[in-house]
Amino acid sequence: MTTRIANWARAVALVASLSLAGCAAAPSKEDPFEPFNRTMFEVHEAVDTAVMRPLIDAYVAGVPKLVRTGISNFFNNIDDLFSAVNSLLQGKWDQAGDQMGRVMLNTFVMGGIFDLASDIGIERGHEDFGTTFGVWGFPQGPYLFVPIVGPTTVRDGTGMLVRLYVGPVGFIPDVATRNILYGIGAVDLRAQSADAISMADTAALDKYRFIRNAYLQRRAYLVNGGKPPNEKDDE
């Protein structure tokens, strides 16, 4: 009997030490394609320096702030529609209602170029197909860095593809108009994240790693309902 308990204890200790070893190797588990991703990151940085940054500078200098805000709001409004859809898919009914209300209000007042809903206190949500898959319990999968697109994971990337496939913007029949919209959307997104990216430049010892860690932390937080893991849903 005693030997059996001893054996059992030994087995538990072995499993525990193995899982601890697993923890130590965790970064490579999240990012098994690190060498490839780093190459993609270098490509991204080169393109960003050569093309995107000059474009953003010209965009910020040449387009009045009011117009830029209108463009951001237009694209945010489309995101909000997907946030509403994904809130529904996750069974977050109140949140879905809020997001749907935002989209309806903002769309019917000037087609989404003003964010009236935020002004009256309906906050934007953060749901997308990636967080829905996360809430449904799909594993995150390996981390991926895609030039221009930026950091993602297999789960979030799949979500993005679903999003691109169902549109809107995708539904616009005229290819040229659609591509122009994609282009403006990309410039707008890069302009919005310019401050965060310049912060990574100052803060990071290893920019690739810094961005990866921040991205994975952020996504885990969003899948967890925008709360730190130990907090109860009491609001």
Partner: peptide
């Protein structure tokens, strides 16, 4: 400081570890 769910200290832990 935790910004949008991203903890500054946690973000540096992995970088420090690697160095």
């Amino acid at each position: 400081v935790i910004v949008g769910g991203v903890s500054l200290v946690t973000n540096y832990r992995d970088e420090f570890n690697e160095q």
